[in-house]
Amino acid sequence: MTVLAALVLALYAVLAGVLAPGRLARAAWPQRAPRLALTAWLALAAAFTAAVALTAYHLALTGPGAHAHGLLALLEPGTRAAGPEGPAVLVPIALAAAWPLARIAAAARRARRDRTEHLERLTLAGRTDPGLGAVLLDHPTPVAYCLHRGPVVISSGTVARLTDGQLYAVIQHERAHLAGRHHLLLTLGAGLADAFRGLPLGRGLRAQIAPLLEMLADDRAARSCRPEDLAAAMCEVGTPHPSPATLPAGGGSRTLLRMRRLLRPAPRPRPAVRLVALALIALAPLVPYLLTCGPTPG
């Protein structure tokens, strides 16, 4: 039965790592509910990791005396679930979990190093402007971004080109990134994308996490400023050197989509739909355990 469990788990890993990411990346609803979509991407990563780890675990258990576990035990009535055959069978689980954790740690080190280097350059090239509540760079190119954990950075070109309302909207967008601790999610997504490189899951994480975070910041900023001001500012500002440590206010391939969201917002999913979606997202990483390791009914 553990061979069957390994086969079912491998198929679930294909679903979470290959099939579902492609559908999610092509779907239109994430722009209506970016927070829900962000949660879905992270749940797929957790589900894929759990499925791979438990596949290896059940392959290690295969042999004489191996018994059914979890819901799959219903296919073999009369058997009793057996516990692990020894600590050695936990090694595959540890290895499967260690790889994404190691890549997340490496992404965090890169982001921290990049932020430190960027702060050193800002010390030489910028000055704190109390009126803006940001570091002001004396440069004609209109740029606006924030570093992980701050500060917000604005160029003199941005101040000169934007109206007061647009400048306020840009600063509110950057403060939304900081208030939401989006740098943590950006680092998490970068690490998971590295861990699953070559899979649709890894490509989707790399392509989707940052735009979804920008949409979240847009939505939060739009509560305290005119959406028209923020949309207009997106056309003018960006970040000259995108890096793991910066979250820009504008620029990028999704700018037109973000402007459309602000100027012609689509209705959000109904609460009942969101509740069902959240339940499915929460269940996705638990399915491998419930099928093959959880308590056996009856």
Rank of each mutant, 00 (worst) to 15 (best):
R115V: 13
L38E: 07
R127K: 12
A40M: 09
G180Q: 05
L75K: 05
L137Y: 06
H241A: 15
P269M: 07
L201R: 03
Y57R: 11
T79D: 03
G22Q: 09
P267K: 11
T62H: 14
L119I: 09
A231T: 08
V89S: 04
L280V: 10
A169L: 02
H58P: 03
A105V: 06
R115G: 08
P34T: 02
R113T: 10
R113E: 13
L44N: 09
A60E: 03
R127P: 03
A50W: 12
L283I: 12
E214F: 10
W29K: 09
R268L: 11
L216N: 02
P269T: 12
L291P: 10
V14G: 12
A125M: 08
T128D: 13
L188Q: 13
L72F: 07
A10F: 10
E120W: 11
A134Y: 00
Y168W: 06
R175E: 01
P227R: 07
V170R: 00
S155Y: 03
V14S: 08
T239P: 05
H118T: 15
V273Q: 11
P211H: 02
A233F: 10
M259N: 10
Y145G: 00
T246W: 08
D229G: 02
T163H: 01
R226N: 11
L256S: 15
A6P: 03
T296W: 09
A125V: 05
D219H: 14
R23G: 15
L122G: 03
L275R: 15
L15W: 15
A25R: 12
L283E: 10
L290D: 10
G191V: 01
R254D: 13
R127C: 04
S253Y: 07
L38M: 07
A108R: 15
I209Y: 01
G252P: 13
R175T: 00
R223L: 12
A107Q: 09
A82G: 15
T246E: 11
D129G: 00
A88Y: 01
A94C: 07
L15I: 12
P30H: 10
M259Q: 15
L4G: 05
E117T: 11
A25M: 08
I93L: 15
L7T: 13
R220C: 04
S243A: 15
R175K: 08
R149Q: 13
R268K: 14
P34S: 09
A97V: 06
L36Q: 02
